[in-house]
Design a protein around this nucleic acid. Structure first.
Lengths: 207, 207, 207, 207
DNA sequence: GATGAATGAGTGTTCATTCAT
DNA sequence: AATGAATGAACACTCATTCAT
């Protein structure tokens, strides 16, 4: 009984994710969402205040999942910061890939006005970023990562990179293998584009 | 006479950029654009087919400028691939920072439907990416950059990173100095997050 | 058992009266009525056909009470028509004041569409008016009231006056004492605004 | 040109009055108003903020006209208070009869929520009532009208009476002649229902 | 009987676009 | 060319009413 309700609420959210991801938030019609969810148009409003609320929930769920995954990782022992970084990227990546609708929404719904509410402190969005930030700071403290980098900015750079790569992956005709994407992200995040040797020895002057 | 026309067309585009960047595409009102441009609402349609066309033009101009800047760089001699990469990032960065409206649009207007038209082959968007891609491939050929990376994906990763960083910069209260942003991008793009020494020597096992 | 039912039916009507009087018919929500009555939303429809029916019942009850009060008065002996008129006004007034919800409804819910059904002949509304009309006609027959007046119109004038006065009373900040209202009604109904002496002697020409 | 605009604005208001008066405010459809006015649905909003604004304008116009008519009367000389009262009732009556749509609206749209805005001080509604109130007070000062009456309440009684009488007139099948209505109002307002002689001599005890 | 979740018809309002002037 | 008044399609949301439980 109470399970059925949860199921219905869930199916509406899934339908919304599907429609948002394929049409974008502004072109998504509530009627379409209702149709896909298999409920009457008015029923959506029994569970969600309005269209915006649907998006908020979707994104919040996403950040929550991400936070929970990263949280375990953060407090785990037996990995050095570099391994944790690798793992974090993997988690971020896997979470995104797991549900392509969410990925598309994450990728696309960046529009200015769609973010105001989620920046409330201690939203999962912030929890995620704070946790990840601290992981990087620890890596800096133990000498793994250069101290001159700002942890928050670093995080944004990497997550932005991942986002665009997935955008590319999701929209490209000839599907790029996910493993290629994954490896690319790992290399670039950890080593950057420049060959490590050059980074240390410097560039040979006769080139 | 013909100059006056060009001026008016230009001022409309500038107004559109201003409004798009502050409200987002979907909340931007044509009436507001006309008002800011100082023209009648109907006049916009003398120069641009519709709202979408305005956005297309803005983004196209942006990619054109970017392409032209990168083009010179690409064919220039006297720089090694690493220096060119650095310079390219600088160009990308500077071009974005130059006009904050455009940056905000570049950052936000990712919505699915807003991109279909621009992927036409030989748009400046593609020209830019092709050129940049070739630069990276040259770097790989000459051993500067690891061959295992896909040039196109690399490019997307970096541009996505830059985008998110600038988003962060544009929306953060306490303005982060642009130089910090710039340096962060340079380091991460070229060296990644992991300290180069570890990248080569490997991680000490006793950590 | 059957009493419990009557009680529930009653409480729904009371709740409806409360909500109608505070929000007006069109802004009254069935859900709110159900909540105040302490029943489920669907239960209302076990007792009343629809929203309109609730209003009909409320008003019908009101006219019924009024009719019953006036009926006794009409057939009573020992009062002259003027005294009966006075008494009738008093009854009308007291009935209205007794339940302020009903008053507000009587005062406000005049909207065209809300009346069609109630004009069915031999509704209590009509019974009340017929009885009151006859009282006035008797007064005319016995010379108390001027014969040139139409009894029905007279009645409407007076009841309209009372209605507006009560509206005034119900909405005014600084509560006007009910006695003042009552006295005003009595004087104006019986003597009008003009000082009786002038009415007979005529107006002195030198004013 | 500017006249055409005024004409269009006017025609929309007239259409609104027509529809409001026949359906009531809440059942009036904007689409219907537009259709009757012969304009597109959106055009209404070029001239009026919303549906409520239409009603406000209609009623405000009505009170304005009424105020202007009463104002002249109030400051005129050569009439005693009783004559002025008579004249005022006539003006009120004539203004209402002049446009039956407005009358119906005046009669029906009393709903609680439809009045909030108009009670702003110095609206024409208030100006009208203040002016009329002063007329009555003058009549009391010069002994024409009984001092025990409150001028404001008196006014409300009379206007309420007129309203109901016109309601009656407007909805009755067999059209009552307007003259009958008018005379009824005059008599009742000035002399009340009781025969003036009785009012002075008292009621003979043997009745 | 009683419930309250589900429904979907219904509508005020917006705004990109057009076109008469 | 330039205007801005006019348009009308489109849509999120409400809420009286129903009906499965």
């Amino acid at each position: 009984m109470i399970d059925k309700k949860r199921l219905k609420k869930e199916s509406i959210l899934e339908a919304a994710a599907k429609v948002f991801s394929s049409c974008g938030f502004y072109n998504a019609k509530m009627a379409k969402i209702a149709e896909i969810a298999g409920v009457g148009a008015g029923s959506i409003y029994l569970y969600y205040k309005n269209k915006q609320h649907l998006l908020d929930e979707i994104l919040n769920n996403f950040w929550k999942k991400l936070y929970e995954n990263i949280e375990k990782l953060s407090s785990s022992t037996g990995m050095n910061p570099d391994q944790k970084l690798s793992r974090m990227i993997e988690v971020l990546f896997d979470t995104l890939v797991e549900d392509s609708s969410i990925t598309m929404i994450f990728v696309h719904e960046n529009s200015l006005d769609l973010w105001n509410e989620k920046v409330e402190s201690n939203s999962y969005f912030n929890l995620f970023f704070d946790t990840a930030e601290k992981m990087i700071e620890k890596g800096q403290a133990s000498g793994f990562f250069p101290k001159e980098l700002d942890a928050s900015l670093t995080l944004h750079f990497i997550s932005g990179g991942i986002r665009d790569l997935l955008h590319q992956w999701a929209t490209s005709e000839k599907k790029i293998p996910l493993d290629t994407i994954k490896k690319t992200i790992q290399i670039l995040s950890r080593h950057g584009l420049l060959h490590p040797e050059y980074a240390i020895k410097g560039i040979p002057s006769n080139t």
